[in-house]
């Protein structure tokens, strides 16, 4: 954190002094400072470590009945067994495949509709309220309907994940593109930009931070929906199926393992989104 703040000052000083090279350097420094600060920062690990200790203790001293709480070592052991003899890697792959398929469909649809709504004020007025109302629907309320339309197998699951990804994507893209500052719109008029040039050079870059907010939300929602679809729709290979299996067969170590994997993938998605955003929206930290 302190490294971050320090490089922040260096950056602004460099900017005031104007020459480009030092400023670029400062930007680069900021990047490394960030990464360095992250790997050295012990604080997030402290709470994680404490939780692990607590878990060990709870198991060891029998605070929780052992059939409800495996030892962390049991979970690691189960992982090894699953990887060498079981199907967990295949399940993970199936879950990720579903998730990515739904995510791509939902994000693409959200980008397209959001872009249209943002560009055409009239369309925004006509279709916008419906989109907003759709967003108010609790995500899981879609499950029964979608399973009727698309069935409980893969199409139904992917449709549900796509709906989940679509919602934050469409709203943020729409808002981002319709909130382009009036000064930039005026500039585009003066420079005789065509609609397409305006979209490409002004609207999209200006909306990029909001589009990324939408993408971030889409990743999280789609991941939630992936778990949900695998739990509530037909049983099929996938992490959600293993969760069901763990609870029904009372294999507590499997249950814990599947939860941990869900958490890890979610964490990876989140980190990925943040890194990508930081890279692509560099100029935005003016």
């Amino acid at each position: 954190m302190s490294i971050d703040a320090l490089s922040g000052t260096a950056r602004s000083t460099a900017r005031d002094a104007a020459p480009a090279a030092p400023s670029r350097l400062a930007t680069a420094l900021r990047g490394t400072g960030h990464a360095l600060g992250r790997s050295l920062d012990w604080r997030p690990w402290a709470s994680f470590g404490a939780l692990l200790l607590l878990w060990f203790a709870a198991h060891h001293f029998g605070w929780v009945e052992r059939k409800y709480l495996p030892s962390p070592l049991d979970v690691v052991h189960r992982l090894v067994v699953e990887v060498t003899q079981g199907t967990i890697l295949f399940d993970l792959k199936e879950t990720l495949r579903r998730n990515l398929a739904g995510l791509v469909i939902g994000v693409a649809a959200g980008l397209a509709l959001g872009g249209l709504l943002g560009l055409s004020g009239r369309l925004g007025k006509i279709v916008g309220p419906t989109v907003l109302a759709q967003r108010q629907t609790a995500l899981f309320a879609w499950v029964p309907l979608l399973s009727m339309w698309f069935g409980g197998a893969d199409p139904g699951k992917i449709a549900f994940i796509a709906v989940a990804a679509f919602q934050p994507m469409v709203v943020n893209t729409w808002r981002g593109i319709s909130l382009v500052p009036a000064t930039y719109r005026e500039l585009s008029d003066v420079l005789l930009f065509s609609r397409w040039t305006y979209f490409r050079l002004v609207a999209v870059p200006s909306a990029l931070p909001m589009i990324f907010t939408g993408l971030h939300g889409a990743l999280i929602y789609a991941w939630l929906a992936t778990v949900g679809s695998e739990l509530f729709l037909n049983i099929a290979p996938g992490l959600g199926g293993r969760l069901n299996e763990g609870s029904q067969l009372f294999e507590i170590d499997l249950l814990f393992l599947a939860i941990a994997l869900f958490g890890l993938v979610g964490l990876a998605y989140n980190t990925l989104a943040e890194r990508a955003e930081a890279l692509l929206v560099r100029w935005h930290a003016r």
Partner: peptide
């Protein structure tokens, strides 16, 4: 204000 597009 210069009104340059910051991303270009």
């Amino acid at each position: 204000e210069h009104r340059l597009l910051p991303w270009l």
